[in-house]
Each structure stands twice: as structure tokens, then as C-alpha cells.
Amino acid sequence: MSTPTHEMWTARLRSSWQRNLPIEKLLPDDQPAYVASWIYVFGVATIAALGVIIASGIVLAFQGPAWYHTSDIGNFTNSIHFWSVQMFFAFMVIHLWGKFWMAAWRGNRVRTWITGAVAFVVSIATAFTGYLVQTNFDSQWISFEAKDGFNSVGVGAWFTVTNLGQMLLLHVAFLPLILGVLTLVHVLMVRRRGVVPPIDAVPANLEVRK
């Protein structure tokens, strides 16, 4: 006997997606009027900076880690990568503080906060491996100093900061993949739940389902 359509995994996923994240939520053309502060800009600014990081990173990856030392275009591309990382963190930290002071985890949004906070931690790891693969004096220094921290808790047995090959692969493949997935899930959660309402919002503004 074949499985009824509504019990199929694909059908379940489709109906769950349609129920929780219809296209109107995914690509809205209006939003609550209280979303008016400049603080709201920093979420999308963080994603924009991530876009510039990935684009410049792809160019650097095609040419190899030592290219930018000897090429003017390479040096310029590396500069774009460097400054977009600086902006990414500045925007993300402001976004994070903003969401903290909004208590943005209210209303079943705990997982949205958690994915964002984990993305912040993964971003630090991704940037750190980037500093290790610069193939310049800075990366020599950082790898020598940082090994002690990782070795001291046993992590250094597998995560070898002095191993350029390992750090390069983690920096350009594994960690960006994790960060990309976390960012996507985070954004989809924001779209699904909507922007958190103001603390002490007027009851009439929020319709509680009976």
C-alpha cells in the first residue's frame, strides 16, 4: 500500500513551509510602523557586508593566498576583504546590542536570537582563520601565540593554527558554509516570526489567536 500523499516527507515539508513561511512573509511589501529606528538598518547592513566579504573572498580564493602580496589588484581585493570584515563586525555588534535592548527573543523568537548569536561566534572563528592565512608576519605571529590557547584545552590536537593548509580550507570552505547556513536560517526565522513588537505594546495592536 502506498503512503498517502499528505504523509509523504516532501508533502509535509511543503505544507509546513506554506503554513509557516508563505511568500507574503518571505517577500513582504509592508511592515509594522514601529520599525522606524536607525538601529534596524544594521541587520541588513551586516548581510550586505557579508556579501562583499564573500565576493572579494572568492576572487582571492581563485588566485591563491599569496597573490595579494605581489599584485596591485590582489592587494586592492585584499583591502576590500579586510575592510568589509571590519564593517561586518561593526554592523553585527551594533545589531546584536540593538536586539538585546529590544529583548528581541520575546514572542517565540528565542531560536532567532540563538542562531544570530551562534553566527556571531562562528564569524569570530571564520575571521580568526582568515588572519591565520594571510601568509605574512601577522599570520606568523598570531599562529604562534594562538596555538597555546587551543593546545591548553586539548583542541589544538585537531585544530592546528600553525597548519596553513588546514586553516585555509576551514576559512574558505567549512566555516563560510556554516556561517552562510546560519545566516539563512536566521533571516528565514525573522521573516517567519516578524520583527519583535515594542516592549509594552498596545494590546489592540497584537491579535492573540484563541
Partner: peptide
């Protein structure tokens, strides 16, 4: 309170081009 904060917004909205 959680249910209240999770409820769909019924107040004023404005145009938003994501």
C-alpha cells in the same frame, strides 16, 4: 506575554521594499 508578543501585528504598518 509570550503569546502576546508572538501574535500577528494588527497596528499601523508602512510600505517596505525588502
Amino acid at each position: 506575554k509570550e503569546e502576546f508578543d508572538a501574535a500577528p501585528w494588527q497596528g499601523k504598518t508602512r510600505k517596505y521594499d525588502i
